[in-house]
Amino acid sequence: MISAAPKGRPAGHETAFFSQPMVVVALATLCCLLWGSSYPAIKTGYALLGITQQDIPSKLVYAGYRFLLAGLAVAAAAWLLQRRLTVPPAAQLRQVMLLGLFQTSLQYVFFYIGLAHTTGVRASILNATTTFFSVLLAHFLYRDDRLSARKGFACLLGLAGVLAVNADAGLLGAGASLQGEGFIVLAAFVLSAAAIYGKRVSQQMDAMAMTAWQLAIGGLVLLAAGHGAGGSLGRLELASSLLLAYLALLSAVAFTLWSLLLKHNPVGLVSMFAFLVPLFGAILSALWLDEDILRWNNLAALVLVCGGVVLVTRGARPAAAPRCKPAPG
């Protein structure tokens, strides 16, 4: 059955389950672990498929298939959990299309290109600036979410982390680049802006349906752009096919679980776990890709960024915090 979004309060047993402290900790940590694993997984996919740093069209095709599959998987999850899939009316469909264009298509153009030009450790740390961009944007967009001394200090910690991770090369010196670290930060900014818009859209329709549509639409745009520019994945082998399926499923699972946690808990409580994404991303990149995480600047950046995320999300107001994933992986 395809129908309009369900109305009314969520079922009591569902709320009771997803509000249990141990469930919140376990599922939020799982989401952050999945998002953190995307950094080394994407870079491994580049290697398996022979996608070079300069082959931007093939990167777009790679991302397009991932998010189209992820959207279909979220739609399947919505069907299994709710026995329905919302088809938004024309006005909302235009909003979802705009959200997919920016939150999925544009953001991941920057993210996939940037990740090819930097390490997984650096990317996972720099992408955590999404949280700080959200705080700064909320200051100008929400009257009840102005920049406080605590939030200002947290943003300064985040900035210090960005400077620390590039301390061995200058902000964009010999060891850093606009296409690498610069694009990762641009992806974080696009995500934070799109997520605030997505919060407004989600208030008018079912969050899972919105996620499914925007992922699928964004994936289709990436596919069209990539194939139109001559991109291709070539011949998919078993390993690369399984990795692509994993990337699609991790997005679908993490999006769905995070949305359910946000639905049944204060946003500030759930968002506090966002500091685990750069932590998991850096550790898994070090283990999976044999990258150096033990450099003083990487460790200092991790401490500064994670501390800033915890500080800025502590006691966050549910009404103002954007209901978004903490990272684009």
Rank of each mutant, 00 (worst) to 15 (best):
L223I: 14
L236Y: 02
L233H: 07
A224C: 12
G234K: 12
T256L: 00
G234N: 08
S241L: 14
G226S: 12
G228T: 13
S232M: 02
G219W: 09
L249M: 15
R235A: 13
L215V: 02
A245Q: 03
L243D: 02
G228K: 13
G219A: 12
A225P: 07
A245V: 15
W258M: 13
S241Y: 05
A239W: 11
T256I: 01
L238Y: 10
L220E: 03
A252V: 05
Q214C: 09
I217T: 02
A252Y: 04
A225I: 14
L233T: 02
L247M: 14
A254Q: 10
A239N: 06
L223D: 01
L238C: 09
A239V: 00
G228P: 00
L215R: 00
A225C: 15
R235I: 04
A254W: 04
L247W: 01
S251T: 14
L223N: 05
W258A: 05
L236E: 03
S241P: 00
A225Q: 14
L223C: 12
W258V: 05
T256P: 07
L223E: 00
G219D: 06
T256R: 03
L220K: 03
L249S: 14
W258K: 00
L236W: 01
L242C: 14
Q214S: 12
L243Y: 04
A225W: 12
Q214L: 14
L223A: 10
L257C: 11
S251D: 06
A252K: 06
A248R: 01
G230M: 09
A254H: 06
V221D: 01
Y246H: 09
L242N: 09
I217N: 03
S232C: 03
L215F: 15
H227N: 07
S232T: 15
G219R: 05
S232I: 02
G228N: 11
L233Q: 04
G218V: 07
G218K: 01
L243K: 07
I217G: 06
W258R: 08
V221T: 07
L223M: 15
L257V: 13
L249Y: 06
I217Q: 02
S241C: 01
S232L: 07
A225N: 10
A225R: 11
G230S: 10
S251P: 07
L215Q: 14
G228Q: 11
L244C: 05
E237W: 01
S251L: 08
L257R: 09
V221E: 03
A252Q: 07
